[in-house]
């Protein structure tokens, strides 16, 4: 198959970027999308031109490194799939394919399709953990956990932190990302004791990082490569209200 690529090229966060056209011919439909970019980059290097920068690592859809917009959608057209797991058979011969970085105030462009997602780390380090030192833990099976809760917690914890939710959201909100961590820990007895403090701090950090508010359009969940459910956002809201009321009552 032949394809026509339009790729956002930007040499750094300080420079302006613009779209460049590239054409690739005889692309095997069974290669992955990133392997297609590898071929383009090899070609550019042969021509002594700067290859397209993009983040990627495991190429198994789990590390969360990859991700950019393909024809306006984070990670491209296939549901529940990261860019690295997308294959060229999802496209047609002579398709025009537009590649842009994730766009959000809190994700600055580093170069081309690579963006800075350190704000996600800061949200987690504000309180996305259980305060237990190494060696303090008791026997694991002393705290039985209902299977349904453990399974739900797992589904929330499966977030890969790629940022697609933010890129999909018209408000650039990080609610799905933040709520997935809040939910994961709220569903387990280990996380319960610090829950109020956790949700307060994580929401405050999320706001301070410049992410927008959630208006429940659900685009985040629809575009999430790991299908993190919107229920997490409802759970965060409930925990947040509980925490706010709790501190209100304490003050009184």
């Amino acid at each position: 198959m032949n394809i026509n690529l339009k790729i956002w090229r930007q040499s750094s966060d300080k420079k302006d970027g613009k779209l460049h056209d590239y054409r690739l011919e005889n692309v095997d439909p069974n290669i992955s999308f990133l392997e297609m970019l590898d071929i383009l980059n090899n070609k550019l290097v042969k021509e002594k031109k700067d290859p397209v920068a993009f983040d990627h690592d495991c190429r198994e859809g789990i590390c969360g490194s990859c991700g950019f917009m393909i024809n306006g959608r984070p990670h491209g057209p296939q549901k529940a799939t990261t860019v690295c797991q997308l294959h060229m058979r999802s496209f047609k011969d002579e398709d025009d394919i537009l590649l842009e970085p994730f766009r959000a105030k809190s994700f600055g462009v580093i170069k081309d399709l690579s963006v800075d997602r350190k704000s996600f780390d800061r949200i987690i380090s504000s309180s996305g953990f259980v305060s237990v030192d190494t060696g303090e833990a008791g026997e694991a099976n002393y705290i039985p956990i209902e299977k349904n809760n453990a399974d739900e917690a797992f589904l929330s914890a499966a977030c890969i932190g790629c940022g697609a939710c933010v890129a999909a959201c018209k408000n650039s909100s990080a609610m799905l990302f933040t709520s997935a961590k809040v939910s994961h820990l709220a569903l387990l007895p280990q996380g319960e004791k610090e829950q109020a403090d956790r949700v307060n701090k994580m929401v405050a950090t999320m706001d301070a990082e410049g992410f927008g508010a959630c208006t429940n359009t659900g685009a985040c969940s629809a575009e999430c490569p790991k299908e993190i459910s919107q229920t997490n956002i409802a759970r965060l809201n409930r925990e947040f209200v509980k925490a706010q009321l709790g501190s209100f009552i304490k003050k009184k």
């Binding site: 259980v130 190494t134 039985p144 917690a153």
Partner: peptide
Amino acid sequence: QCVAQGVPFAR
């Protein structure tokens, strides 16, 4: 240790 941190192992 991992269970105490909230690692959601299969149950």
